[in-house]
């Protein structure tokens, strides 16, 4: 397994937000974590990206123990985050945002090819490369956030609610891009509220509710479960 989490407890202050969560992502897999607002999805993905410390449990990436290393070392293992709400460096230009993605020496040497790849994936960003990231539309900002992650030459890309706040047509394009990312060789861990879309693209999925995994399996099987149909699809 590329990514392995065993019995993770993550939280702020006294109350853990994520309880005893175990999940796995294999190389080249797309794994979705679905669940309602406030279930702890973002907490979970931030901990896997190194932004939050795990209180208890085991987190391994390609065999390496990730619980003891510094936040800024996660990226060098090949983990790249597309955070909720994009979190671009708003005052910096589009191209500077992308360049931050290849900050680490290993990715920096491939800067030119990586930039070319991102611009061919998102041609509009080439035209806007000198503009401050804050001036872009929501969809374009999401492209920059994804591009920034791809610049890091990641082995896994963590997507946190990539469709949030985007127009429906842009959402479709976003999920196509996620499929492209996998086709290019990286694994994907996807956290989404858009359950149908997420299950449509994922190889496997976990259901997170109130900080715990309540179900896991193949998307087709999950869609058959009465609880999932009722809670997430309203049927």
């Amino acid at each position: 397994m590329l990514l392995e989490a065993r019995n993770l407890h993550i939280g702020y202050g006294d109350a853990p937000a994520v309880w005893d969560v175990s999940l796995e992502v294999g190389g080249g897999e797309i794994v979705a974590v679905i669940g309602p607002n406030g279930a702890g999805k973002t907490t979970l993905i931030n901990a896997i990206a190194g932004l939050l410390r795990c209180r208890r449990g085991e987190l391994r990436f390609d065999g390496a123990d990730m619980t003891r290393i510094n936040a800024h070392a996660y990226c060098s293992h090949g983990i790249a985050l597309v955070p909720e709400g994009r979190r671009l460096f708003a005052k910096m230009s589009v191209e500077e945002n992308l360049e931050l993605g290849c900050y680490l020496p290993s990715a920096r040497s491939a800067r030119a090819q990586s930039l070319e790849r991102v611009y061919s994936l998102f041609p509009i960003l080439r035209d806007k490369r000198r503009q401050p990231a804050a001036e872009l539309s929501g969809g374009q900002q999401q492209m920059v956030a994804i591009g920034r992650a791809l610049m890091a030459k990641p082995r896994i890309v963590l997507f946190d609610e990539p469709s949030l706040g985007l127009a429906p047509t842009v959402v479709d394009a976003m999920f196509e891009i996620i499929a492209r990312v996998r086709a290019d060789g990286a694994a994907v861990l996807l956290v989404e509220q858009n359950v149908l879309k997420a299950l449509g693209i994922a190889d496997r999925a976990y259901v997170l509710e109130q900080g715990r995994i309540v179900a896991e399996g193949l998307p087709g099987d999950l869609l058959q479960q009465p609880h999932i149909r009722e809670a997430y699809l309203g049927v």
Binding site: A49, A71, H72, C75, S76, L81, F89, M92, E99, R148
Partner: peptide
């Protein structure tokens, strides 16, 4: 320079800069 850009990025969002390897 990368160091200069990293400093500006970290001034805006230190956590995300760290996620991309910036040792602020």
């Amino acid at each position: 320079t990368y160091v200069g850009k990293a400093l500006r990025a970290a001034a805006e969002d230190p956590a995300i800069a760290a996620a991309y390897g910036v040792d602020h």
